[in-house]
């Protein structure tokens, strides 16, 4: 027995007497309990509640209704509208945020001086409190004094100020524009970081071999960035489909359900209409989608870890 072992056993405390195979789990227990109780358990609870008809005002008096809540999703035209809105929101919002974010990231890498200061400024829309960002856009799109109406008039696109946030046809779009503004900086930073990670010598070599700029982009930049871009793409999808604040602050999902997305509808169903059962069924729908996204996120993540 070495000297160190002797002294350690002399000081040996209760923790050190627990068998190694169990002791190794102890430090992880608190985090897992916290995450288990406040994040994983509620998911199970939502699945359970989705089979009941219950009111938020008396949540203990639920009545088992089987799949009736899911049937409601299947038949209710308002909810169809919401699902379609969510699809438009996620596809348009993600693609635009990626395109705009990529351009911004490239500008940061290639054209702007003081990259770290510039990228901090670019990040501001992403880190501002959600409600602050959304209320700026609400003000800018507002009907009476909105600067965007003035801009459209000056550009000759419309003749007179129009109602945007309160109009059934237009109200879906202003929150999407606000959301692109919030998410693009995030994608820009991911782009910048992965561009910085590419070895300059690769470009040099390709230039020597006579590769055109397009070929250099297509055969060096894109392949080198593919997992980073995939992670960024999945993050955009996840943040877009989860978003609540941008819509709620700007339009509250209205008028009617014209600008409601799934999260806003869950909130309205549960906390305005008090229908916990239906809201839970909608939540389960949202989980399933998020679960698919997360599955791919983790898969891409593992690939990326393998490269380093």
């Amino acid at each position: 027995m070495s000297y160190a072992d002797q002294t350690r056993s002399a000081y040996g405390n209760v923790i050190d007497r627990i068998p190694e195979s169990i002791r190794v789990y102890l430090p992880i227990v608190p985090v897992m309990v916290l995450v288990g109780v406040f994040i994983l358990y509620p998911i199970a609870q939502a699945v359970y509640s989705s089979f009941f008809s219950k009111s938020l005002l008396s949540p203990d008096e639920g009545e088992f209704v089987g799949l009736a809540n899911y049937q409601e999703i299947w038949t209710n035209p308002d909810l169809h509208q919401v699902l379609w809105n969510t699809f438009v929101w996620v596809s348009v919002g993600s693609i635009a945020a990626i395109g705009f974010g990529f351009v911004l990231g490239w500008l940061l890498y290639e054209k702007f001086p003081y990259t770290s200061v510039a990228s901090a400024i670019v990040l501001i829309p992403w880190v501002l409190p959600r409600v602050v960002g959304a209320s700026i856009w609400q003000f800018m799109f507002g009907g009476d004094q909105g600067i965007i109406n003035e801009l459209l008039v000056q550009l000759g696109i419309v003749d007179d100020y129009i109602v945007m946030l309160g109009s059934g046809e237009l109200s879906l779009w202003p929150p999407i524009i606000g959301m692109i503004w919030r998410l693009a900086p995030l994608f820009a930073l991911l782009t910048l970081t992965s561009l910085q990670g590419i070895d300059e010598h690769l470009y040099e070599a390709a230039r020597m071999d006579g590769a055109t700029p397009w070929e250099r982009f297509r055969y060096i930049t894109l392949p080198m960035m593919r997992y980073n871009l995939a992670i960024g793409f999945l993050l955009m999808l996840i943040y877009n489909i989860r978003n609540f604040s941008m819509v709620w602050v700007m339009t509250e999902g209205g008028p009617g359900v014209s600008s409601s997305t799934l999260p806003v509808m869950i909130y309205r169903t549960a906390f305005v209409d008090f229908n916990v059962g239906l809201a839970s069924a909608l939540s389960v729908l949202l989980f399933v989608v998020l679960l698919v996204f997360s599955y791919y996120y983790i898969k891409v993540y593992d690939k990326l870890q393998g490269e380093f």
Binding site: Y41, I43, I266, Y297
Partner: peptide, 12 residues
Amino acid sequence: MFPGTAIMVPEW
């Protein structure tokens, strides 16, 4: 990935 809107009802 889940917190926020997806679990607001069961969390309540």
